[in-house]
Amino acid sequence: MCTTCGCETDDVHDHHHRDHDDHHHDQVPAVRTLRIERDLLAKNERLAAVNRHSFAARGIAVFNLIGSPGAGKTALLESIIRRVRTHVPLAVLEGDQATDRDAQRIEGAGCRVRQINTGAGCHLDAAMIEAGVRALAPPRSSIVFVENVGNLVCPALFDLGELAKIVVMSVTEGEDKPIKYPHVFRASRLMVLTKTDLLPHVPFDADRCVAFAREVNPEIEVIRLTALRGEGVDEVCGWLRAEAARVWPSRRAAGIASP
């Protein structure tokens, strides 16, 4: 029996008042259901796919740095810039809710930079990166770093068209952060564990933290770093070069990889 009108049939049938179209009472128009079936992130993902294709075609390696406020993202960038700016053209897109303070630091380290202020926004999206990279106009065989808004949650969700996401966390945070904020650790190819010079002073078990990270992402690579003393910076630069070689024209990549 039809549960809507009580008639005998089991077939699905509509219950529009077509049988009495000739007398108009103020009937409520029939509700129709339109199936749409669209991913909510579809627009950003389309733009990200266009970015990824366009960056690869132009030989630009884009890395998306994600971490909490204070994890050491800007300090990491400063030390990378000082190490490789004479060998590789670099540029940075700085995302913050407000101010251009980080952009000033990056500029002070000697790198082209463009600040993006998101206002109330908690993340960067693919459209912002497209506009930012267009404004920076990086040359072939270059690297563009995106320093995302300090936040472990939202940036994990928005593909920017980057070559790889890099999650940055410091030893002054909880070692269980990878399992508390699993999305970003799952989406990242590299975890940089910063401020390791503080390890003797803080109750932080680095091996346990790495184990937590591999619990959510068995493939994630880990580099331990002390930006202030420069330890681990070469290792990060080596990782970046190897990754960038995937989109750089091959002769350039070979030249950079063997100085």
Partner: peptide, 8 residues
């Protein structure tokens, strides 16, 4: 996902 909408 946006599945569907009900409209009149």
């Amino acid at each position: 996902r946006l599945k569907e909408v009900e409209v009149t």
